[in-house]
Amino acid sequence: MNPLPSTATAEPDARTAEPALAVEHLSVDVHTASGTVRAVHDVSFSVHKGRTLALLGESGCGKSMTALSIVGLLEPVAEVVGGSVKAGGTDVLTLSRRARRKLAGPVLSIVFQDALAALNPVQPVGRQLGEPFRIHHGLSRREAREKAIELMRIVGIPEPRARARSYPHQFSGGMRQRLLIAMAVALAPDVLLADEPTTALDVTVQAQIMRLLRDLRAERDMAVVLITHDLAVVAEHADDVVIMYAGNVVETGPVREVFAKPRHPYTKGLLDSVPERAEKGKPLPAVGGSPPELSAVPPGCVFQARCPLARERCADERPRLTATGPARAAACHFSEELTSV
C-alpha cells in the first residue's frame, strides 16, 4: 500500500488516531439578571485532523457558546459548569489562564463572523496579522511583518506588501474575511473553529472563502469546526455534523448519512424546509413554532413542542443521545419511526 501524502483527507486512520479536539459532556450556564440558564447542555463531539465537523443549528441554540467555551473566550456572564475540552491530549478547561493563552493560536484558533468588527480599525492589517508571531514566537516587528505579508499572499490578497499597510476599512468584505482567516491560521493550529465565517458575505464570495478554508485545512493539516446555520454549507464542506437545538445535541453523524436519512424529527424538519427538496407548487414546509426560551426548557424532550412525533413519553423523559448506526446517534425516543417515513 502506498503511503498517502499527509495532506489527503485520509478517512481510515483518522478514526483510530487521537482526535485533535474532543469535547465531552460540556455544559455552560449563563447568569442573567432574571436567573441562571443552561445555554449548552451535555454536548460531546470530537474531530480529527484533516476533517471538518459542522455545528449546525439556529440562532441561540448554543453553537457559538460551545465554540467560545472551547477557545476560552466566553463573556464573564457565561460559565463552563461541566465537561472537558481535550486538545492535544490535555483538558484545556483545567489549565491556568496563562497556560491557555499559550495554546491560543498554535493549538486552538477561531475565526469570527463579522470581519470588519473583528479587525482592529486603527491598526494596519499587516501589524494585526503579524501579532501571533510576535506573541508566540517572539519575532521582531520587522520579522512579523514579513510573516504577515506571506500570510496575505497565501490567502490570496493581491499586492500583499503594499496592502499590509492598509487599514481594515480599506478592504472588501471578502478580503477582510480572508485576513481574519489568515490571522487565525498563522501558527498552523491543530484545531480551527470558524464561527459563521461566511454569513456576512454574498454567495460567490462565500464559495471562495469556503474553498480557502478547505485548502488551508489540507495544507496545514488542521481539524476544522464549522459553526453554521447553513445546510448547504454543511452538505458541501463538512464531513461530520452535530445538530444542536436549545443547547442540546439532537443528532450527530457523518453529513452524508445524516442528510440522506435523518434520525431526528428536527433534522428531518430542517432538511424538508430546503427549497430544492420541496415539491413545486406546494407551500414550502417549515418547522412550525420557535425554540423554547432557555429559561423555560421543558423537562422532557427539548423539541417536543414542535415535534410531529411527540407523545406522552416525550413530555416526561428527556431522550438520551443513543447510537442509531455506526458513528451516528440521535436523541429521540422514536427515531426508529423516521426510517420508514
Binding site: 493563552r101 491560543a104 477561531i110 469570527f112 482592529n120 480599525p121 501579532e131
Partner: peptide
C-alpha cells in the same frame, strides 16, 4: 469590541 476578543483569541496578554 469584537477585535478585543480576537486579540485574546491570538493569545495576547491582558496588558497587550
Amino acid at each position: 469590541a469584537p477585535y478585543v476578543k480576537v486579540a485574546r483569541g491570538k493569545g495576547a496578554s491582558e496588558k497587550r
